[in-house]
Design a protein around this nucleic acid. Structure first.
Lengths: 239, 239
DNA sequence: AGAAATTTTGACCAGTTGGAAAAATGTTAG
DNA sequence: CTAACATTTTTCCAACTGGTCAAAATTTCT
């Protein structure tokens, strides 16, 4: 999943160049090459980001160390710092890339589809993401727990905007009597919560379910339970 | 190391005394006072634990520093270490105290009550805990995200035991046709997830709801939404 | 009050952390 | 082959980390 060809970069332009504060004004309008990024550099960056995801998602930003990330990435710390001069930068990159894919399932909720199957599909997709990208989920959770200091802007704009839009969509369905009337925002929260739970609280889920019920069927059981929940709640069918 | 001569220190009973491994056997049957804990000591410990909760809940174990905790507690680092010689010990105390109160709501679910009102009460109580003790919730979440390295035993025994018991209770209600049939474990997970979400992802919830809908009514809206969800799901009433 | 115990402080330490500098080692185009 | 650039390694550092210790300040007990 890391292989990308991309167009051939004409010139290297490392990533480190200490242009930290020296060229603050120079960068403002200098027409110099905006660092094209060679294929090799992209690869290494991907390796680093992959390792960083592994570490950040478990320990959070403060708790993770560059040494740890470097070790997981299989390179020396200074070498890693050559590609990402700042710890923060690695984290920012991860979060930015994450948020985009993270919201994709919600974006796909289609106003022209059948309400129930749209919602069911959304839950499915979110559940699949929790299963297939648990580290991303935990990275996100970690950031939230800390008060989202590094991404407050993103969630206040991109995320809020998308949720507002989909909340309107849900409201429309409610107005048409196609789904029960509830607060669409809290409905979305509940979907987020129930699905991401399986990634973020994985240890707990495993521990409680015990060794017997922990195979691949775990997610199927979860999907069924959530489907029943969102479809009928706990009301028995025969009443 | 840790040479302990001490002049006339027969039984000062501070809290620090490095009795880590030195008096393993001595403590076994020595009739000396088993650290009575003066009122003042208890007070200071509480201040420290309160401060530690504040810091640990945001940054996790690794990300939190003793200096930070000491500052929040309003005392010097060595002074803090006089009461809790180890960082880990503070954390362990917090977690131990937490887990007990955290599971209380589930314990209260009564098999003799009406299924629906029992479940509704449980959700209410959990939601109230998320509202009134968000730091505890985040501390717990942080520990889970990290794989629960420090409390695996507790969740594998106490927590699993309790959930097993309540799952049986729920199954009983299902057998009697009083509530719809679903996987009781995943049902409990969903309740945990939806309620704790409001503590753990507080920033996100606030950001999405915007300034208008963020007052005290927030939790009321959540409660109503969850009640609707667990009672009827999204099925419209008129069908 | 005065002795004894408890609590607090300041100085200090060894190990870790994020990061800088520069030298050493590739790699590649001419 | 070699200049010019890209990458990696070595060395180093100042700030921070969890923690120690003895002395000083304070409280407690008689």
């Amino acid at each position: 999943m890391t292989s990308k060809k991309l167009k051939a970069a004409d010139h290297p332009t490392p990533v480190s160049r200490r242009q930290h504060k020296a060229d603050a004004k120079a960068a403002a309008h200098s027409p110099t090459k905006p660092r094209p990024l060679t294929r090799i550099q992209k690869e290494k960056q991907d390796i680093i980001l992959e390792a960083a995801l592994e570490v950040f998602s478990v320990h959070g930003f403060r708790g993770a160390t560059i040494d740890q990330i470097a070790e997981v990435a299989g390179m020396s710390k200074p070498n890693l710092l050559y590609y990402f001069p700042k710890k923060e930068e690695i984290h920012r990159r991860l979060i930015a890339a994450l948020l985009d894919t993270w919201l994709a399932p919600l974006r796909e909720m289609d106003e022209n589809g059948d309400p129930f199957s749209e919602i069911r599909s959304y839950i499915r997709r979110k559940l699949e993401m929790a299963r297939d990208f648990p580290r991303e989920s935990r990275l996100f959770a970690n950031e939230m727990l800390q008060g989202a200091p590094r991404i407050s802007e993103m969630i206040e704009v991109d995320l809020k905007g998308l949720v507002d839009e989909k909340a309107r969509l849900l409201m429309g369905w409610m107005d048409e009597g196609k789904i029960a009337r509830t607060d669409p925002y809290h409905l979305i929260f509940s979907i987020w919560a129930t699905t991401q739970h399986y990634a973020d609280f994985d240890v707990q889920v495993r521990a409680v379910l015990g060794p017997g019920r922990n195979g691949e069927g775990r997610f199927e059981d979860a999907a069924r339970t959530l489907e029943q929940l969102y479809l009928h709640g706990l009301t028995p069918r025969n009443r």
